[in-house]
Amino acid sequence: MIARIIRFSLIFIVLILLQVLLFNNIQFSGYVNPYIYIIFILLLPVEIPSWMLLILSFLTGFTIDIFSGTPGMHSSATVLAGFLRPFVLRIISPRDGYESGSDPSMIIYGFRWFLIYAATIVIIHHTVLFYLEIFRFTDFFRTLLRILLSSLFSIAFILLLEFIRKDK
């Protein structure tokens, strides 16, 4: 248990640093802003209590908010993603259910499952985030394009990180 908390704390710090120092500075032509820190919410154990998931989601978003100077924006998006994660997990659950005490990772449940899982959460998160950022419905389709492109990049990076983890 303690080992797990330390492991996730480390992941949390590394992801925040990656996001703030590296990915916040990636901007291809104003359309692509990958937000990979969402992987922290993806990787939390399947059986984590919902309230803890929500609070951790809020904390993640809030930390990112503090570093990028946009109070409330990432928090709202991550809280929604954290709230919807149990439902997503239930919908795409494998035929024989989740193993008790497991993390929702590619190593255990396979590439296809993880892709669907990550894509769903990432798209939900990015949709909320980008519309909150622009906060109006003029340029609706431009924002939609930004969401799709950024989600594509985020998912690609998340898969990359998962492959690295898998090889280790």
Binding site: L54, F58, T70, P71, G72, M73, S75, G82, L132
Partner: peptide, 19 residues
């Protein structure tokens, strides 16, 4: 909890960002 946190997020959003 979700509503409280989301409300907090929106509160921060509306007070912290001028736009």
């Amino acid at each position: 909890i979700f509503l409280v946190l989301e409300g907090l997020g929106f509160y921060l959003l509306s007070t912290g960002n001028g736009y």
